[in-house]
Amino acid sequence: MRIGAHVDATDPLGAAAARDAETVQFFLADPQGWKAPQPHPDADRLRGSDIDVYVHAPYVINVATLNNRIRIPSRKLLVTHATAAATVGAKGLIVHGGHVNAGDDLAVGIDNWRKTFAYAAKSGGFATPVLIENTAGGDNACARRFDNLARLWDAVGEFDVGFCLDTCHAHAGGEDLLDIVDRVKAITGRIDLIHANDSKDAFGSGRDRHDNLGNGKIDPELVVAAVRASGAPVVVETPGGVDGQRADIALLRGAGR
């Protein structure tokens, strides 16, 4: 079981050592901005390291939307980040499932996802595997509730798309963690990465606020059970800096033995 944390991009390998982590995840650009990532100064070291690397795409990316002013730049930025992620040896590029606006047809948003992969496939596909992540909120989200996730996978599954399961997002989104791995795999056939996060908020709240394992509203045994059942690499995206994340990693590693 490869376990690690979301860290600052300045020194991912140093951050991994401080947390006793085998995996790191980081942003390559402002997560709330549209600027393309710059070359990472430690790209060579990251590619040559035995630490597994994942990159998280900016939150602003929403390829599902019917708004051309957001969808078209989102497609371009996703391709750009996948290319940049390859330069640091990333095993996956995580991107949120996106949403359509109130009153818009979700089926069109899901087809926009299909078109995103179809367009990329025409030029050889994404340089780094794309992992779609389930999200916590939004009544018009593509990957919050698993009935919509199933519709999304019917549209994009043929493109060998990966999936990232976030435990906080599932809990906040109204999906019970009990047997969640079986339910996800029945839809996607795979889980490529788990974001093992507790939630500060109640089940079904729709609020995306992470907490350290055992400190929030989720029974940590349910998180541990999901991690064990998935067999996937794990990233904690929890607060508390080095100490908080190191404790979360130790909890998961101890439970996995």
Rank of each mutant, 00 (worst) to 15 (best):
D208T: 10
D198P: 00
G162M: 12
R190F: 06
V224L: 12
L222Q: 13
A186C: 06
G162Y: 05
C164D: 07
G174P: 04
F163W: 09
E221K: 13
V235S: 11
H169A: 04
H195S: 10
I180R: 13
A232P: 14
C164Y: 11
R190I: 00
V181W: 11
I218N: 02
K200E: 14
V227Q: 03
A226H: 04
D179F: 07
R183A: 09
D179H: 15
R190M: 08
K217V: 12
C168G: 12
I187M: 10
A172D: 08
E175T: 15
V235P: 04
D198L: 09
H210C: 05
D192Q: 04
L213N: 03
V223P: 12
G216E: 03
I187Q: 11
D198Y: 07
F163E: 10
K200H: 15
G162E: 13
F163Y: 05
G174F: 01
N212C: 11
G173S: 01
S205C: 08
L222T: 14
T188W: 10
D219L: 02
I191V: 04
I191C: 05
H195W: 07
A186Y: 09
D182F: 10
A232M: 00
A225W: 05
G173E: 00
G214D: 02
V234D: 12
R207P: 13
A225D: 15
A186D: 15
I180G: 13
D208A: 05
L193D: 03
N197L: 08
R228Y: 04
V184C: 01
G173L: 02
